[in-house]
Structures are given as C-alpha cells and as structure tokens.
C-alpha cells in the first residue's frame, strides 16, 4: 500500500509542494528543490513540534504564557488544558508557572506583565 502525505514547505518563500511517501522503511520526500525541504518534511512526519502560547488566569485578569521549548504538536491541546487549570494570585513576566509540563521537558513561563487597560 502506498502511503502519501502532501504538505507545503515553509522553509523559504518558494513554498514547494512536498509529497512524503511513507510506505517503505524510510521516508521518501519528493517535490522539494533543496535539502531543507527534505529535512522539514521528515521532521513534520516523525516529530512535529510547536511552541505553545496560552493565557493563564490570575486574580487581576489574564497573563500570556508560553512553553520554553517546542512540544509535540499532538500535545498542544493537553498543554493548554494544563494551563487552564491554574489560577494565580500574583505573577509577573519570567515567572515559571508549571515546571516540566506533562513531562515534556518544557516549562510554562509568563511572557508579559499586566497591561494597563483603561481606554
């Protein structure tokens, strides 16, 4: 059985339409015009990762947070759910609010202070 996945390369503005054939032992990438496309496709197929940003509740509103490292794409919603469970009394930029979230080797850290919102 031939297993093919289509994707657009985002390594440069070329935007090559990549086809990844995963029917054999090794992934075969076609449609790319350089090695970066092949590497991108293989990583997207085997272990796609993303930095996740979210909002943490505090006693004075919400603060922005992020994962300190990219986490597996399949875990994005789980990570956001963990952040949503928290409610902080205080918090400021740089504070770690969850250490090693879900064992993914990334912390959840506050990325901004409270924004003065009187307008």
């Amino acid at each position: 059985m031939k297993k093919q996945t289509m994707m657009t390369c985002i390594m440069c503005p070329m935007g090559c339409q990549l086809v990844v054939d995963s029917s054999g032992k090794e992934l075969k990438v076609s449609g790319n015009t350089c090695i970066r496309g092949e590497n991108y496709a293989k990583e997207e197929m085997t272990s796609p990762k993303r930095i996740v940003t979210a909002l943490v509740k505090t006693s004075f509103g919400v603060l922005p947070v992020k994962t300190t490292k990219p986490v597996p794409k399949s875990m994005i919603f789980d990570v956001v759910r963990e952040v949503n469970k928290i409610s902080l009394k205080t918090g400021k930029m740089g504070d770690v609010v969850i250490k090693n979230v879900l064992g993914l080797d990334a912390d959840i850290v506050i990325t901004g202070n409270k924004v003065d919102d009187r307008i």
């Binding site: 940003t53 922005p64 930029m93 901004g112 202070n113």
Partner: peptide, 10 residues
C-alpha cells in the same frame, strides 16, 4: 531569537 510579542516589546 524567537520571542512572543510582549517579550519583543519588553
């Protein structure tokens, strides 16, 4: 280096 908006502003 990659930052979020508030970090870049800071």
């Amino acid at each position: 280096e990659e930052f979020t908006g508030p970090e870049y502003a800071q």
